[in-house]
Amino acid sequence: MFEANAEVFSDRSLGYVQDTFEEFEREAADDFPDHELWTLAYDGDQLAGWVISAEEEDGVADTPWVGVRPAYRCQGLASALLRANHAQLLDHGITTSGIWTLAENPTGSIALYESLGYREDTRQPRYRKPV
């Protein structure tokens, strides 16, 4: 998961900072301990894509990680993973899922999320400055 996450997100200039393995492992264990809310897709022993969710409060989940490795993109995998994740959330009594993305994300995440029924709820400002 650590290597796949780094492959998907670290090649972008959108502010992603790669954690050490230990930081990644600690965050995953502390913030996403219920692995029944993780939805993973494999091609043999290769992790192809994932959706990681956690229950934030009664009936509400946060889904901060949605990733598909480049070789598996544009094949409907992200949609399938999110739909499967929604079913898992419902099985656990979670009726609302929150997800966030960057407006300038080049992978089309906004269109994907909107196609699955997500709607913009909050917009956070992003500041940049050349140094």
Rank of each mutant, 00 (worst) to 15 (best):
Y72C: 00
Y16P: 09
L47K: 12
R69L: 09
A48E: 04
F9P: 07
I94N: 03
D31F: 08
T20L: 02
R26C: 00
A111T: 09
I52N: 00
D91W: 06
V66E: 05
I52V: 14
Q75W: 01
L89F: 02
L112S: 04
A71I: 00
W50R: 02
E120A: 13
T95K: 08
Q88T: 06
G76D: 05
S10L: 15
D30C: 01
E57H: 04
A103D: 12
N5V: 15
A48V: 01
L82N: 05
P33T: 05
H92S: 09
C74Q: 11
Q75N: 01
A80G: 07
E3Y: 12
A48I: 02
N105S: 11
N85W: 00
A78F: 03
R73F: 08
A6G: 13
Q88L: 11
E104T: 15
R69P: 02
W65C: 07
Y113I: 10
E7I: 14
D58R: 07
D31R: 10
A80V: 01
A111Q: 10
V68C: 06
T96R: 14
E7K: 14
E55Y: 01
R126M: 11
V131E: 04
P64Y: 08
P106K: 06
A71R: 09
S79Y: 01
W65D: 09
Q124D: 11
R128I: 10
R126P: 04
G76N: 03
D43G: 00
K129G: 07
N85L: 06
D19W: 12
A54G: 05
N105R: 10
W50T: 06
T95P: 04
Y42H: 12
I99Q: 04
F2A: 08
A84I: 01
L112D: 10
G49F: 05
A87F: 04
M1A: 15
L81D: 08
T95A: 03
L40Y: 09
P70G: 10
G44L: 09
E56L: 05
L102I: 12
F21K: 03
E55K: 05
G67C: 08
G93T: 06
L102V: 08
T107I: 13
E114V: 12
L116S: 13
E55F: 00
A103I: 09
N85C: 12
A6C: 12
I110D: 10
F9Y: 15
R119A: 15
N105Y: 07
V66K: 03
Q18C: 14
N5S: 14
L82K: 07
W50A: 10
